[in-house]
Nucleic acid binder design. Structure first.
Lengths: 115, 115
DNA sequence: CATGTAATTACCTCACTTGTTAATTAACGA
DNA sequence: TCGTTAATTAACAAGTGAGGTAATTACATG
């Protein structure tokens, strides 16, 4: 994808293996081999997944001897969050309404207080 | 993509044209032709983009004579929002600190009311 | 019924992604 | 220096994505 940052980020997130890698990295730094371990996949494949995440800015790779400790970088996720903002009202309203509905159900079943 | 819902959603969002279409739909329903108008692209191309969005559940198409009024559906975005939750702590801390900083700047410059 | 409009489907092309195995680079350590 | 380990790169196959034009479907209307 020769696209913008947001497209790069979304494309990076559009793969279960890569999302799994990100989840792993929330538990701290890890080497490529460590990140590859839980995935039924060759090491080069995981290495390329990491490259995609790196290109999207979601992962930063360091160098320690022959290891490449990978670290989570959430800046692109903040951009996703910002992109979501205009859409949030479309589902947060309904959620609020649902929450309100559930709350009214509770008050109805237990005791009075109509509005 | 023979993947899960989240991958389908992220893949659908990983294209500027499709995100532009979603933005258009926040301003109300629109036909395929209307959605295609702002994009320097053939109608079939836009039709296929809509199919991707539809498959991801982000767009619902109705039928009115020969028109297919498209409507925004944000349920998948709520799933994205939920997926982001564990990562939010990694960047919201900083944002909260910024918000707090800005708020303190405001109260400092205008007048009192600390807590 | 013929015509025009909205939209999709068919067909083709080009480029990229994802996975594999084999080879290569880089660094440590006996 | 030789062998081992970590990781990447090379080379290949298969699948997918995105675009175009041409043909087709579906509906409305003169």
């Amino acid at each position: 994808m020769i696209d913008d940052d947001l497209s790069l980020t979304f494309a990076a997130l559009a793969d279960p293996t890569r999302r799994s890698i990100l989840a792993q990295l929330t538990r701290g730094e890890a080497t490529v081999k460590e990140l590859a371990a839980p995935h039924a996949m060759s090491l080069p494949a995981v290495s390329r997944h990491l490259k995609v995440l790196e290109r999207a800015g979601l992962v930063v790779k360091g160098r320690e001897a022959q290891w490449r400790p990978c670290r989570l970088e959430t800046a692109p996720l903040r951009d996703v969050d910002a992109w979501m903002a205009p859409y949030r009202q479309f589902f947060e309203d309904r959620f609020d309404r649902l929450e309100q509905h559930l709350r009214s159900l509770m008050t109805d079943s237990t005791d009075e207080e109509s509005r």
